[in-house]
Structures are given as structure tokens and as C-alpha cells.
Amino acid sequence: MSRIPVVFDSDPGIDDFFAWMLLNSSDKYDIRAVTTVPGNNTLETVTRNARGIYRLFRMSGTRLAAGASTHMLKPVDVPPGAHGPTGLGTVELDPGDVKLDEKKAWDVIYEEAVKAKGELEIIAVGPLTNLGIAFFKYADLKKLVKRIVIMGGSTTQGNMGPFGEANICHDSHAADIVFKTGIPIVMVGLNALPPCAMEGDQMEELMPENINPEVKDVCLRIMQSRHYPLCDAVTVAAVLDENLAQWVDCYVDIETRSPLTTGITICDLAGSKDYFGGDGARQKCKVAITTDGKLYYDMFREMFKKYCW
């Protein structure tokens, strides 16, 4: 079976690191490009991290492109604490001689979409700024992308505002653009993550003896700064094996106007729009309701086997 061409848009980021690691270990996807976006830290920092991860995972042939340095209507506001001073806890990865693409993230996304002739998927696990720019700049892009997988939002509680989730809140306008494209969207939000909580010592137990020592060391040092589920990794896991999550199809709208609720992903789980009508989204998204921790742990065990060199 041919592998699915994918662009991975990310703001590494502790959980981004493991999402990338999972995606890179998979035979399902062919990573055509990795693009960076500010979120968990500034563009400069996350891009440096991306180069370091690219080297650590011994990648080649995949384009690596930096994205926006600001969000669409707002400046970048890096939350204190969540991902530590380097964005990877306190870990500083050597970027080696990894070079960035000459093109910006949105141009790379568009070029890869054209090349893939309608088969391209995008997995976006940071703020959706690069995607928002790409769809704004290239009106025909929405006809070229097969599916967008998003870590973001929540059907229940948030982590920024009572209901907002950071990736959507950082750039709710970009999220609004993406959710209105009409492209099939898969959304894994905060609500679905708790079964996949994993601590550093639990992760260590999943590693084979002969795992690359640098990879092992980096993973475990990064995990020292992490105390809740690896959101982005769960998202990638859920599309590598869609049995890992329970899904529902529902309309999702992004609030962009209210100071109280901006960034909320309004998931119409009760089917209000089907019955009462109403404005907003006209295409249902595939939304994860909950996840299976055991499958997730198994997937990590298999993943680490690919990092033995």
C-alpha cells in the first residue's frame, strides 16, 4: 500500500516531539514536510527545536520549513511554564547542520498539496496560523487537501479560558478559516486525552534495551517536565490507528468575537443544528470523544523499536 503524503505542522513542544516521533515511525504516512509555527514557544525557538529533532530522528528528504512569526490578528503570546524554557523542558537539542527550506511554511504546504494531486493530508498540532495563511493566500488550496487532522479544542473543558484550548485560542481566526474550508477535519481535543496519560517511568518501561541512547536520554529528560497527556502524540496515534479513539461526526464552530469564549470549539454533540437549523459550519468534523490508553501504550512500544540504531 502506498503511503499517505502528509505535511506535519507543529510547534515543538514536548508533546510535539513525541507526535513527530510517532509519525516518523509509521509506515502509514510519508512525511513530505515539517513546518513550524509559534505556540508552545516563539517561532525562533520551536524552529531550532525542529531542526534538532530532525537531526535526532535521522530524517532526510523531508522538507523543513519555518512558518509565521506572528498569529493572524494577534502577536505571539508564549504561555509561561507549560513547555519549559526551551520548549522541550530544559533540553537543548543540537540542530547540527539541518537546513531550513528556502520557502515559508504556507508555500511549502501549497506546493506539496499540488504535487500530491489531491491526496495530501495535513496533521497540525500547533496553532493553525500557517494553515490559515495558506488558505488565505491560495484560494484553490481547499480543493487540493484531502484531510486535516488537528490537535486542538475540546468538547468539554479547556486549558485557556473555561473552554478554550491553547492551539485554537492562540489563533482563533486561523482556526475559523481552517474549519470553514469544507475539507474533512479530524479533531482530537483535550476531552479525549485523559486515558492516554503517561509518566516518564511508564515510558521508560516501554523502551527496548537497544534503543539509541541519545534518543532514550532526550525522551526521558523531556518527560521530566511533563505532567499531563501528550496531546499531540495522542492525536497522531489516533490517526495512525483510528480504533484508538471513539469518534462522533458533528458540526464544529470556532468563536472569534467574544472576550469570554474566543477560541472555544463549539461541538454540536446534541445535534442542535440538525433539528433547529442555525448559522455557522456546514460540514461535520470527525471529533474524538475518548481514547484507549492500552492501544496508545502498545503503539509507543512499537515506536521505540524503530529508534534502535
Binding site: P162, S258, L260, T261, I264, D279, G280
Partner: peptide
């Protein structure tokens, strides 16, 4: 709990704080 008056999608929502901590 605060009632949202201005949201494009959330007007009329009773925005209910269910968290115990927020943004650290």
C-alpha cells in the same frame, strides 16, 4: 458564571468556570 452577549456562536451561553486552576 457569566452570560456571553457578543459571541458569533456563543451568545446566550452561560460561561461556567469548571476549572480549579487556569494557565498555571
Amino acid at each position: 458564571v457569566e452570560v456571553d452577549l457578543v459571541g458569533e456562536h456563543t451568545r446566550g451561553r452561560t460561561v461556567t468556570e469548571l476549572r480549579t486552576r487556569a494557565n498555571g
